[in-house]
Design a binder for these strands. Structure first.
Length: 272
DNA sequence: TACAATGTTTTAAG
DNA sequence: CCTTAAAACATTGT
């Protein structure tokens, strides 16, 4: 479920715990979300008595600083963060509960595609150094996008936008939204874009990221009807232009587009 | 019952 | 080495 804006939203849910100290940690050592955690047995000791200091997000990644170390996480498909009362008793899918002085920080994830790790200060520094430029940063330039389009010339645009190494935080609905606003067919090959089209794509990446963070990332408001977002899941959904939306698997994911606003070309391979 | 779900990784194949 | 498709992961909801 969570993409850029949803991740930002969930990370903020723990803000009320900032400044409080850890009193107890509960987790299921066998839960799949800890499969990348090589130091799980030490978590209780590592966290004990530490103060929750600050939150951090980058694309779909999130991290929370306790003292000098960081709890790093990814929500996968069904992960959620929420704040419970201090004595919260974990329910079936509450795989990690960090009890604080007055509240409890809870990670819930039924499908367990998410991942959680503990990073020491030095591991954190290494991790941060390897991150891709955020879409809304000055470092996310048109040149960077153009290079990527060229290097992945035969990849469908839909699959391209889902690659986190260049588009951190873009997920299924944001990719569809960006392509729809760019007037680009999701099955267009990355290398086929004119300079004008790639400039438009760059601009819409930024626009959708900015608007999503503002609308969903703050309080999970419903986006305006002018977004594709509100129409794309409905069977028989219509583009605001009045054309019935199409749905098909592109780049391995369910993709929604408007055949009129996002016209097929020779390299969209029969997908109209 | 069968299939799909806003994600990532691994495997296999071209 | 690069690209791509498919499978796998685990659970819930339609």
């Amino acid at each position: 479920m969570p993409e850029l804006a949803e991740v930002a939203y969930y990370a903020k849910q723990w803000d009320a715990g900032i400044g409080q100290h850890v009193t107890k940690v509960q987790l299921h050592p066998e839960a799949r979300i800890f499969r990348q955690a090589d130091n799980l047995a030490e978590w209780t000791d590592l966290l004990a008595g530490r103060r929750y200091e600050e939150r951090w997000t980058h694309g779909k990644q999130m991290a929370f600083r306790f003292g000098k170390g960081w709890l790093w996480g990814h929500l996968g498909m069904t992960g959620k963060l929420w704040m419970a009362e201090r004595d919260h008793v974990p329910e079936k899918h509450d795989h990690l509960v960090i009890h604080l002085t007055r509240h409890a920080l809870v990670v819930t994830d039924p499908r367990m595609f998410g991942a959680w790790r503990w990073l020491s200060a030095s591991a954190w520094a290494t991790h941060e150094a390897g991150l891709a430029p955020p879409i809304l940063s000055d470092a996310f330039t048109k040149g960077l996008l153009n290079d990527f389009l060229k290097r992945r010339a035969r990849t469908p645009l839909k699959a391209l936008l889902l690659q986190q190494e260049r588009f951190p935080g873009i997920g299924n609905w944001m990719a569809d939204e960006i392509l729809w606003r760019s007037g680009l067919h999701p099955n267009r090959q990355a290398g086929s874009l004119s300079p004008k089209e790639s400039g438009l794509l760059w601009q819409k990446c930024r626009l959708v990221a900015r608007q999503a963070l503002r609308v969903i990332g703050t309080d999970w408001s419903t986006p305006p009807n002018s977004w594709l977002f509100n129409h794309r899941w409905k069977d028989g959904g219509q583009c605001p232009c009045g054309t019935p939306l199409r749905r098909a698997s592109v780049g391995g994911r369910t993709t929604c587009w408007c055949p009129r606003c996002q016209p097929a070309t020779t390299e969209t391979d029969g997908l109209t």
